[in-house]
């Protein structure tokens, strides 16, 4: 067998595993997604705070599922970012930066929203699950980039504080279909918690910036 053919075969089988579906038509795929949603509707039961309405997708979730495992078309990405950007609310009093010490506790805390969690709280954001933030905490995940020295490197400017707020409030406003939750938009964090987490990133005294 000639070499090019071998290479073609090898890459073909690599693709088949990840995406047999990629070779289907759009209509087939939509039918499969509809079947998947039907199967899910009969497969879950509500438990604790996790009700069945959690299976209802909003437009962003539906589009990100539809294009998962493939390249996201530019116009779809733009639609997602636009509607998510429009959802961001800044605090009435204009105060974006709270207490980094409380922010650190929120970043450490993975509790909240699982059916095994107390619905009365407390709720954290578990930023460390995905990000390096400080030098002290070495138990951090790598799903997101390191945020160590975030404020120090980006500059302690108003613009950057607004970006940090917006990113934590609704991550999809800046990168469609990111794996990062939309903490403000989904009401995972309240306004004061948002401020405290922004302080963790943006306060020059925060261990993030040491």
């Amino acid at each position: 067998m000639d070499r090019t053919l071998l290479i073609a075969l090898a890459s073909f089988s690599a693709v088949t595993l990840a995406g047999c579906a990629a070779m289907r038509t759009g209509a087939d795929e939509a039918a499969i997604r509809a079947k998947a949603i039907d199967a899910m509707k009969t497969s879950f039961k509500e438990k604790g705070q996790a009700k069945l309405d959690r299976l209802n997708q909003d437009e962003t979730q539906a589009l990100c599922s539809q294009y998962a495992g493939k390249e996201l078309p530019k116009d779809v990405a733009a639609t997602i970012e636009k509607s998510n950007l429009a959802s961001i609310r800044y605090p009435q009093d204009g105060k974006l930066v709270g207490d980094w010490k409380r922010g650190e506790r929120i970043a450490q805390d993975g509790r909240g929203f699982q059916y095994s969690d107390d619905p009365k709280g407390p709720v954290g954001a578990n930023c460390y699950a995905c990000h390096q933030l400080t030098k002290q905490e070495i138990s951090f995940g790598t799903m997101g980039p390191s945020l160590y020295n975030f404020g120090k490197l980006r500059g302690y400017t108003d613009e950057m504080r607004r970006y940090a707020w917006g990113k934590v409030y609704n991550s999809q406003a800046y990168s469609a279909c990111t794996n990062m939750p939309r903490f403000g938009h989904a009401k995972i964090l309240n306004e004061q918690q948002m401020r405290d987490v922004v302080a963790l990133l943006m306060d020059p005294a925060s261990p993030v910036n040491q």
């Binding site: 997604r33 939750p181 989904a186």
Partner: peptide, 20 residues
């Protein structure tokens, strides 16, 4: 095919799927 679609199905307060 259905299993694959469920694997990539994002939902809930955190927008998570298996694929996340």
């Amino acid at each position: 095919d259905v299993g694959r679609a469920i694997f990539f199905f994002r939902g809930g307060p955190h927008d998570f799927a298996c694929s996340t």
